[in-house]
Design a protein around this nucleic acid. Structure first.
Lengths: 233, 233
DNA sequence: GTATTTTTGTGCTGTAAAACATTGTTTTAA
DNA sequence: TTAAAACAATGTTTTACAGCACAAAAATAC
């Protein structure tokens, strides 16, 4: 198997498809101003209240976007996977960061100064439309999430999270194990419940034969049933 | 006092500031393709699942964007006031509507076909940037709302809603009465609680001298205290 | 002006889920 | 290689809130 470090990393404009609409000139400008940065596991990338300066494009690893609420309880808003971009919303809204971002495993990301992004948008309408679509999609996800997190019961919320994790991060070579190894706490913080309840409900799902669990590895055994729980619960 | 119908209504490009960035040609094109439509109280403007065709710009009245969740419970996602635009997100995300929109009082809105909006965006970067900013702001509001609605207690959620209503719709001539007359049910659906709890908590606030209530009129008497309840609760 | 529906107000009950406590297990670090 | 910290598992207690049921008041229709 070839590890990441052995491969020649593509420059940012070839690395993710969103930049395909750029002219050669714009691509060069983007490349010249982008730097690659590595982050250790559980390293904070940016914090709520900071001024947004860079847009990040995740190259390897996994990142959580979260918000600390009442009484130290943290809510994970969304999860980032490689080639996803993040950290640009607050800049466009002309606000300080409203959320924080932290790696959940060792990660690396391309950092693009937001002024550079803004400048290219001003000269390239297709890129502008890409951002419009991206923001509009995220907004739709958030709208749906508001209802799920407030109305569904613990079982339904956890089932939905498991399906999301599978859809977002995919499965390992066995075709079943979710390619994401969140701690019970992160799983709880994503699903708006206590860690105890995430653990409890997970074991219930195991007893019911819906999933199989081994440490942080989770296999979906009965997707049909999991979807049913997500929908009704 | 001059009522709405007696005034000469401005054309859409002069009516809300977002179109100021348009050229004369674009303005004419926009004007030619826009129609004004009236909606009765509690009339549905669009429904979840429908294909988005028009962007709406609210001229008079109030509109709620909501989503029907588990067991008939409805969650109001956001409230629209005149000059606000709505109904465009799903088109940009290339999805069917994920939410529904309904008036909460007699309203009128300019309807602009989304193809027209898209076409102008393609030729006018400033308009594109306006939409980027608008979507980014809404996304920030949603992110914050996810945490408020899931972590705050009933009192905190209701207090937050009252402050939002005041900030969004302003006050009447007495300088105190919130210029919004939602039913207890709508107030509950916005704040993620049952109608009973909205009523109960509202009376508690009255006993505590934080607000005064007369039918659907709500006055904020002690804003300091209301903010405290919103923050801690 | 009366009937009917909708909205509002209040008390009571059951329960889902948080909070807390305890113990075992794995990972990290000294 | 043992101590310490973080994580996982499970049982018990507490509580915030939903879910009724019912009555009164207001809005709307007839």
């Amino acid at each position: 198997m070839v590890t990441y470090s052995e491969k020649q990393l593509k420059p940012i404009d070839e690395f993710c498809p969103m930049w395909e609409v750029l002219t050669q000139e714009e691509r060069f400008y983007l490349r010249e101003n982008t730097k690659l940065q590595h982050f250790r596991k559980n390293e904070v990338i940016y914090c709520e209240g900071e001024t947004p300066k860079f847009m990040m494009c995740l190259v390897t690893g996994k990142v959580k976007i979260y918000k600390d609420g009442v009484g130290g309880r943290s809510q994970i808003i969304r999860l980032i996977k490689p080639v996803d971009i993040f950290g640009y919303r607050a800049f466009f809204a002309k606000e300080p960061y409203l959320t924080s971002a932290s790696t959940i495993e060792s990660s690396s990301a391309y950092l693009v100064p937001m002024q550079v992004v803004e400048q290219i948008i001003q000269s390239n309408n297709k890129l502008a439309l890409y951002f419009i679509q991206s923001l509009a999609s995220d907004l739709g996800v958030d709208d749906a999430r508001i209802v799920s997190l407030t109305q569904k019961h613990v079982r339904g919320r956890l089932a939905e999270s498991l399906i999301m994790l599978r859809d977002n991060y995919g499965v390992e070579s066995d075709g079943r194990t979710i390619n994401s190894h969140l701690s019970r706490e992160d799983l709880a913080n994503y699903s708006n419940m206590t860690t105890s309840n995430a653990i409890r409900t997970l074991s219930n799902f195991v007893s019911e034969g819906v999933i199989a669990v081994s440490g942080r590895n989770i296999q979906i055994l009965d997707e049909e049933q999991l979807r049913k729980i997500s929908k009704i619960g």
